[in-house]
Structures are given as structure tokens and as C-alpha cells.
């Protein structure tokens, strides 16, 4: 089981504006409120890859 500090993320909108640091809970909450749009990406702070925020990081509202 993970026991380290929670991971933090950078969220980037289509225009390249970023918000950080965000927890996965913050991002999930934003998604539930409909604040995350298609084309937004997220990256782990310290990581290199940008993930599709709508597709991957957003646990909520898949159905």
C-alpha cells in the first residue's frame, strides 16, 4: 500500500494555463463540477508525461 505523501498534479487547460499543486481529490471534485474540459491535460509534479485529464485522471462521471 502506498504510504508516502499524496501525489500532486499540474492541470493544464487548452490555452496552456496551468494550475498546481492539485491533489487527485481536487481534480476529481473539479471534474464533478464540470470544470474540466476536453483537451485539458494533467501531469504528475515531478513526472514528464501529460495525460488526458478528461480521459484518465478523472475518476468521476465515466458513465
Amino acid at each position: 500500500m502506498a504510504s508516502g505523501p499524496p501525489m500532486t498534479y499540474i492541470l493544464r487547460d487548452r490555452s496552456g494555463v496551468t494550475r498546481e499543486p492539485l491533489s487527485i481529490g481536487d481534480i476529481r471534485w473539479m471534474a464533478q463540477k464540470g470544470e474540466i474540459e476536453k483537451g485539458w491535460t494533467l501531469r504528475v509534479v515531478g513526472g514528464t508525461r501529460w495525460y488526458d485529464a478528461m480521459d484518465l485522471a478523472i475518476h468521476g462521471i465515466r458513465g
Binding site: 500500500m1 502506498a2 504510504s3 501525489m7 487527485i24 504528475v44
Partner: peptide
């Protein structure tokens, strides 16, 4: 780190 890998799996990444 391995801890971070576990956390990222837990976060759904």
C-alpha cells in the same frame, strides 16, 4: 520511487 508508483496506481493514473 516505488512508493510513488503505488500512489499513482491508487490515484488511477
Amino acid at each position: 520511487t516505488l512508493c510513488q508508483v503505488e500512489a499513482l496506481h491508487e490515484d488511477g493514473i
